[in-house]
C-alpha cells in the first residue's frame, strides 16, 4: 500500500456522498439572486413604487418647472450640484424625480452618512437611490459607471438655516465636490432651486435638543405650528418649485491625479457658488408669488 496512491478528494475530504460539481460554465455565471437590490442598495421595484407615489406630489403639489435641462448630459457621468433647503429637504426628491422623468436617466443622490445610521430610514433611502457621500462612491459612480450624481455642497448647513437666511448659500465645504469631479474627469452642472426654502421653513432651532439627539439641527418649522408636531414633519407647504440648470463647468485638468491644487479647488468651488447665488437672486427677482411662481 503506497501512500502516494491513495486517492483523496481534495475538494471535499472523505465525502461519502459526493455533491455534483457545477460545470465550468455554470460556476462562472451562476448568480442565484432573489431580490433586485443592486450593489448600491437600490431596488428598481422600490424605485418604481416610490416614483408612483411621489409623481402626484411632484406634479400637483410642487408643480416643478425646469429650465435649461439641455445642460444635463444625456450620457456619461456628471456631478449635479444644487442649493439645499427645507428642514427635511424637499429639493433632493424633486431634482432626482424630475431628471428621471424628463431625461429618463437615473440620478444617484449623495447624502449625509447620518441617514445610513438610522433604522428603516437608512434602508428605505438606499433602496430608492441614496448613496452615502463618500469620495470612493462618487468616483465609482461618475468615472466607472458614468452616472449622474447629485450632491449638495452646503451639506447640512443648507437645510439647517432659518427662514430669515433663505436663499443665502452657505460655504461650499472645502470644495470636495470639485476635487471629485476633477478626479473623475466629469463636468459639474449647477442647478438653482427656488421653492424648497418655503416648503418647510425653519423658524427656530434648538442646539441643545440637536446635541441631545445627536442630529445636525433640531428645527421648529412653520409646518409644525400649522399642522402640529407630528403631521408637521410630514406635510410640506405647497411652494411652487422652479429649477434652472446652469451651464456645465468643465475643469481643464487631467483625471485620476493623486492630488489637485487646493487653491484651484477652492477658487472653482467659490465661482460655482457665486454663479448659483446670482442665479438664485435673478430667479427671485422675477418671482411674483411663493405659491404660484
Amino acid at each position: 500500500m503506497a501512500a502516494g496512491n491513495r486517492v483523496v478528494d481534495v475538494r471535499r475530504p472523505g465525502a461519502l456522498i459526493p455533491l455534483p460539481l457545477p460545470s465550468a460554465e455554470d460556476r462562472r455565471l451562476r448568480d442565484p439572486r432573489r431580490s433586485d437590490v443592486d450593489e448600491w442598495g437600490r431596488s428598481e421595484h422600490m424605485r418604481s413604487l416610490a416614483r408612483t407615489l411621489y409623481g402626484p406630489l411632484y406634479r400637483n403639489w410642487f408643480r416643478a418647472e425646469w429650465e435649461g435641462l439641455e445642460n444635463i448630459p444625456r450620457e456619461g457621468g456628471a456631478l449635479l450640484v444644487a442649493n439645499h433647503a427645507a428642514a427635511i429637504p424637499s429639493d433632493a426628491p424633486v431634482i432626482m424625480h424630475g431628471i428621471e422623468e424628463e431625461l429618463g436617466r437615473p440620478v444617484y443622490g449623495l447624502a449625509d452618512y447620518i441617514f445610513k445610521a438610522m433604522p428603516v430610514v437608512g434602508t428605505l433611502w438606499s433602496r430608492v437611490g441614496g448613496v452615502p457621500a463618500h469620495p470612493e462612491n462618487a468616483y465609482r459612480l461618475l468615472r466607472e459607471q458614468g452616472e449622474l450624481v447629485l450632491v449638495f455642497p452646503e451639506g447640512s448647513k443648507g437645510p439647517g438655516k432659518t427662514y430669515a437666511e433663505r436663499y443665502r448659500l452657505s460655504r461650499f465645504g472645502r470644495g470636495g465636490f470639485v476635487e471629485i469631479a476633477m478626479r473623475a474627469g466629469v463636468p459639474v452642472v449647477p442647478i438653482a432651486v427656488v421653492g424648497a426654502e418655503e416648503s418647510m421653513p425653519i423658524l427656530l432651532k434648538s442646539n441643545a435638543l440637536a446635541k441631545l439627539m445627536n442630529i445636525p439641527y433640531f428645527p421648529i418649522t412653520a409646518n409644525m405650528l400649522l399642522f402640529g408636531p407630528l403631521l408637521g414633519t410630514l406635510v410640506y407647504l405647497p411652494a411652487k418649485f422652479k429649477l434652472r440648470v446652469l451651464d456645465p463647468v468643465l475643469f481643464d485638468v487631467p483625471p485620476n491625479q493623486e492630488r489637485y491644487s487646493k487653491s484651484r479647488i477652492m477658487d472653482e468651488a467659490e465661482s460655482i457658488r457665486v454663479s448659483l447665488q446670482e442665479t438664485l437672486y435673478e430667479m427671485l427677482r422675477t418671482r411674483r408669488s411663493v405659491w404660484f411662481g
Binding site: 450593489e39 448600491w40 452615502p132 463618500h134
Partner: peptide, 9 residues
C-alpha cells in the same frame, strides 16, 4: 460603519 464606502479598495 455608517461612514464606509460601498466598496473598499
Amino acid at each position: 460603519s455608517y461612514l464606509d464606502p460601498v466598496w473598499f479598495r
